[in-house]
């Protein structure tokens, strides 16, 4: 393997793990408060935070070249477009 590969330290990984546990607690707590339609967005927001932690640190995305990041962005945007355009039909039916 090439020498410039980044080695993620134990400390970073442990910190991220603890953060993920805390965020899980927060999302469960938030779901017990009735915020109406906001609930789903809070849950999704926290899920997005958790997943970006997993992707950037656990999956080393933070240390990859920009092309990896661009491709991830493309994949996520395409999924968002598929959901969005489907909703154009369903929301206005």
């Amino acid at each position: 393997m090439t020498k410039h590969e980044h080695i993620v330290s134990y400390k970073t990984i442990i910190t991220v793990w603890l953060l993920l546990l805390v965020l899980t607690g927060v999302t469960v707590g938030a779901s017990r408060i009735d915020l109406g339609a906001l609930n789903i967005w809070v849950a999704l927001g926290i899920a997005a935070t958790k997943s970006s932690l997993v992707i950037s640190i656990f999956m080393h995305m933070k240390y990859e070249s920009p092309v990896f990041k661009l491709f991830l962005l493309i994949a996520l945007s395409v999924l968002a477009i598929f959901v969005g355009l489907t909703l154009i039909d369903v929301l206005y039916r």
Binding site: T27, V28, S31, R32, D34, N39, I40, A43, L44, I46, A47, K50, S51, V54, I55
Partner: peptide
């Protein structure tokens, strides 16, 4: 990652 979303969407929906 998939589970993070499954958890949020199915278990925490209120």
């Amino acid at each position: 990652l998939i589970w993070i979303y499954v958890f949020a969407l199915y278990y925490l929906v209120l």
